[in-house]
C-alpha cells in the first residue's frame, strides 16, 4: 500500500460531470409497463386454463386464488427482474463512465427504498393471508378435508353424501342415500353440493379428485369431510396421494359428473343390481374398524373393539 493508492474519485473521468440519468424513474417506467401488459395477459389468456379448472365450486375458487396470487406476485417478480436487468446493463463494470463504487454512494443504503420495499411486501403478504383465509371460509374448506366436525358447512338445502373408502389399493364408494350400496365407480350429479366422507380400512391414504379440487386424507376410523359443488359435466381423475404401499402408483380411477337425472338413474340401477352384495356389507357407518391382525374378516361399524381377541389366521371377529 502506498499513499498514492487510487481512490474512487481518481477513476472519475476528467471534464464536467454529465447529469446522472434518473435511474429509479427509468426502472419504474419499465416495471409499470411490463406489469400493465403481462398481468392482464396472464389473467385473461392463461388464467382460465390454470389447474384445477372450474369443474366444481372448489376447483373454480382455487383457480381464482391461484390467479389472484399470480397477478399480485408477478409485479413483485418483475420489480426484482427489472432491477437486476437494469443493474447488469447500466452498472456493469466494463461500461464506460461507470461511477465507482458501482451504483455510486446512493446504492449503499437508501432508507426510502428499504422502507417502501418492506412496507409494500408486508402489505401484500398480509393481504394474501387475509384473502386466503376468506377464500377458505367462504368456500367451505376449499376442497380440503375438515375432519369429522367441519367448521365451515355449506348452506345448500340438498347435500349428497358420498363415502370414500380407501383400502390397499383401491378406493371404493358408498352412497348412503341410495341404500348404502358400494361400488368402484364414482359418479356424481351436476349442480349438486357433495359431502365426501373419506375414511380408510387399513393404512393412511389420501383421496385426491384432481379436477374437483378435492383432497382429503383417508385415515382408518376417521371420517374426514370435504365439500364441493359440481358445476360442469365431465370426467375427472382420482388418485391416492399418500404413499401407501406396493400398488400406490396404481391406486387411481376415473369418475364422472353427469346430469342429475342420469345420476339418479345410475344410482337406482346400481342399488338394484348390487342389492345382494349390499345386504352382506355392514350397515352404513361413517367409519369402520379394520382388523389389524390380517386376513380374518373385519369391516365393522365403529362400535366394536378394533383388535381381534385372537391372532389365529382366519379367526372370526366379534362382529362377524
Amino acid at each position: 500500500m502506498t499513499d498514492t493508492a487510487p481512490t474512487p474519485s481518481a477513476h472519475q473521468p476528467a471534464g464536467p460531470p454529465s447529469a446522472e440519468p434518473r435511474h429509479f424513474w427509468r426502472m419504474f417506467a419499465i416495471w409499470i409497463v411490463l406489469s400493465a401488459i403481462l398481468d392482464p395477459l396472464f389473467y385473461f389468456l392463461v388464467g382460465p386454463h390454470v389447474p384445477p379448472g372450474t369443474m366444481t365450486s372448489s376447483a373454480a375458487e382455487n383457480q381464482l386464488d391461484f390467479n389472484i396470487l399470480f397477478v399480485i406476485a408477478l409485479p413483485v417478480i418483475l420489480a426484482v427482474w427489472v432491477y437486476l436487468g437494469y443493474s447488469i446493463i447500466m452498472w456493469r463494470a466494463s461500461r464506460k463512465d461507470a461511477p465507482e463504487p458501482v451504483g455510486g454512494e446512493a446504492a449503499r443504503t437508501n432508507l426510502r427504498v428499504q422502507t417502501a420495499w418492506i412496507t409494500v411486501t408486508s402489505v401484500i403478504v398480509l393481504f394474501l393471508a387475509g384473502f386466503g383465509t376468506y377464500e377458505l371460509i367462504q368456500n367451505y374448506g376449499a376442497g380440503g378435508g375438515q375432519g369429522p366436525n367441519p367448521i365451515w358447512k355449506p348452506t345448500a338445502s340438498h347435500i349428497l353424501p358420498v363415502q370414500v373408502i380407501g383400502q390397499q389399493w383401491k378406493f371404493t364408494y358408498r352412497y348412503p342415500t341410495y341404500g348404502g350400496f358400494e361400488t368402484q365407480q364414482l359418479i356424481l350429479p351436476a349442480d349438486t353440493t357433495i359431502a365426501f366422507h373419506v375414511t380408510s380400512l387399513d393404512v393412511i391414504h389420501s383421496f385426491w379428485a384432481y379436477q374437483l379440487s378435492i383432497k382429503a386424507d383417508a385415515n382408518p376410523q376417521v371420517d374426514n369431510v370435504a365439500y364441493t359443488t359440481t358445476r360442469q359435466l365431465g370426467r375427472f381423475t382420482v388418485r391416492c396421494s399418500e404413499l401407501c404401499g406396493l400398488w400406490h402408483g396404481a391406486m387411481y380411477n376415473f369418475g364422472q359428473v353427469v346430469p342429475k337425472a342420469q345420476f339418479d338413474s345410475w344410482a337406482r340401477q346400481t342399488e338394484l343390481t348390487t342389492a345382494a352384495n349390499t345386504r352382506l356389507l355392514p350397515p352404513f357407518a361413517w367409519t369402520y374398524v379394520p382388523d389389524a391382525n390380517g386376513a380374518g374378516g373385519g369391516y365393522y361399524n365403529n362400535t366394536v373393539d378394533p383388535y381381534s381377541p385372537s391372532e389365529v389366521y382366519g379367526a372370526r371377529q366379534p362382529a362377524s
Binding site: I165, Q167, T172, E182, Q184, L201, D202, T274, A276, N277, L280, L281, P282, P290, D291, A295, G296, G297, G298, Y299, Y313, G314, A315, R316, Q317, S320
Partner: peptide
C-alpha cells in the same frame, strides 16, 4: 375367511359379470 370388505365378494369386470365355483355360476 370373511373378507375385510365384502365388496370384493362381488364378481366384477368378467364376461357376463359372473364366475363359476366348481361348475356353479355365481355373481356374489
Amino acid at each position: 375367511s370373511p373378507l375385510r370388505n365384502q365388496q370384493w365378494g362381488l364378481v366384477q369386470g368378467t364376461t357376463g359379470g359372473t364366475a363359476s365355483l366348481n361348475g356353479t355360476t355365481f355373481s356374489v
